[in-house]
Structures are given as C-alpha cells and as structure tokens.
Write a protein that binds this DNA or RNA. Structure first.
Length: 258
DNA sequence: ATGGCTGAGCTACTCAGA
C-alpha cells in the first residue's frame, strides 16, 4: 500500500498536475494540504474520474486539507481539535492494512513567520495542542501515521543554508524541540530513519530560482508509529511534480507499507 | 538583499505563504 503527502498550493490551480501525479505514481491514499478552497468548490468529479474518492476539510482562500483515496477509508474526522482561528488544518481517517487498523492524520501546521508576532504564538499553541491530542490517540490506537506539511525543518542537514534560518519559524530551536517531543511519543521521522545521511528536500521557493539552484528544505514529513516501522518498505521524495509547468512549491513524499 | 514569485478574492490590491 502506497501513501503520499503533498502540499499542492491550491487544488484548483493544480488540478492537472494532481491528476497527472495520481496517474504516474498511483498512490492508494494521497493526503493533500493547502487546497485553498471551500468544500463546495472542490473538484470532486475530475478526481473521481481518476478513480479516487475525496474527503475534504476545506476553507475559503487559505489552508484546507483532504484525503484522495482509491481504497476504502472511514471514520473521517474533521474535528480533531478546534484551533485558535478555526482554520482547516487537520483531517483524520482510518484504513485497514493486514488486519491492522491504522489511523491516518493529515496536517498542515501553521507557518509561524514572522517570529515575534501572533502568527508565531499560534504555531506554538497549535503544535502543543496537537501533541496533546496525539498522546490521547495513542492510548486508543498505537498504529498511527501522521503525514503532511509540518512547516518544521528538523535538522541542519534538512535545509540548504541553516544559518539563514536560525531565527525563522521553521527552524527555530523551540519549534524543532516540539517536533522532537512529538517523535518521542513513539514515532520516527521515517525519511530520516531510513536515510541517515542523505540530503533531500520537499520544498523550493518560487522566488530567485530556488528550484534551479536546489535551495530547498525538507518540511513535509511522515511520522510513523513504532508499531508500524517494520512494515515500511520504502520512503521516497518524488521530485518530478516540482519540475513541471505551473508546479506547487512543494513536492510529494511517498511511503510504501507492506 | 524583509527582496524575489504564486494563488485567492476580486477586478486594485492585499494577504499569505516559507
């Protein structure tokens, strides 16, 4: 079973690239973030034509997350917790694999820049609330996969020039510590777990030729609970969609579970 | 280098992203 996560930066602006990706990569479940639309304007039909059912937690203009799935998923939950501004940043579903019930959690963590503003405080509050929620969920089901745009650069190796980001909301030590706190509940950052020394990015800014220069950062992640680690066969950052015409600034990360 | 580029809402320009 293949599960992917991709911040698409508008589902409607990206629909052709998304359809192409579904065809080329054929994930069983695709978690998308930043769909930037209300549910009523979501392109359900064209996605259904590609063989995928859509489960959407949208919002006008900003944020928004969704699952696209060709396998049966259920227990869709858009009310995991209410965040400070009522933003659509988390959706959950359950999927069965090898008689294990796995909880999939699709998140879009607040960016938090610039620091010394309410946006940064919001990011910290959001992460604290999320950590608390995950603690509770683990008591009910130890099989959890969290995927999405975490807006966290975990380590120096995960950004092209870490010195430029020491006071950035994506790399500030107190934010990275929260990421670590989450992992310490019983997860692995599966990309780093399976690639100890490798440099790979999931985001390249549209500006200043960042893609061409490979000025990127690894901020889209899959956290896999320890109970599932032995079943993860591969993890892959698929750079192809980032090189296409009219791309998202993020590219998908993919895992395969036996 | 607080710039650069892209999308939504809307139709001039701001907000947000990272």
């Amino acid at each position: 079973m293949k599960i992917s996560s991709w911040n698409v930066n508008s589902v409607r602006a990206r629909i052709e690239n998304i359809i192409k990706y579904l065809k080329d990569s054929s994930p069983d479940v695709l978690m998308i973030q930043e769909i930037k639309t209300e549910d009523k304007n979501f392109p359900y039909e064209v996605i259904k034509d590609s063989g995928y059912e859509s489960y959407v937690f949208g919002q006008k203009s900003y944020n928004g997350v969704a699952f696209l799935s060709k396998k049966k998923i259920d227990k869709i939950n858009k009310n995991s917790f209410k965040d400070k501004y009522n933003q659509s940043r988390i959706i959950e579903a359950n999927i069965e694999n090898k008689s294990k019930e796995i909880k999939l959690i699709n998140i879009y963590v607040p960016n938090g820049n610039p620091i010394n503003t309410e946006k940064y405080e919001y990011k910290k509050i959001w992460l604290n609330t999320f950590i608390k929620e995950i603690k509770n969920k683990l008591m009910k089901n130890k099989n959890i996969i969290i995927g999405g745009d975490f807006n966290v650069i975990p380590e120096e190796i995960d950004v092209y020039n870490y010195k430029k980001y020491e006071n950035d909301a994506l790399f500030k030590l107190e934010i990275r510590k929260k990421f670590r706190e989450l992992i310490n509940l019983g997860f692995q950052d599966i990309y780093r777990f399976l690639n100890k020394e490798k440099t790979d990015y999931t985001f390249w800014d549209y500006m200043a030729g960042s893609w061409q220069k490979n000025y990127g950062m690894r901020i889209d992640h899959f956290l896999v609970s320890n109970s599932l680690l032995s079943q993860i066969k591969t993890v892959n950052i698929n750079k192809k969609p980032r090189g296409k015409v009219k791309p998202s600034d993020h590219t998908p990360i993919e895992i395969e579970i036996s």
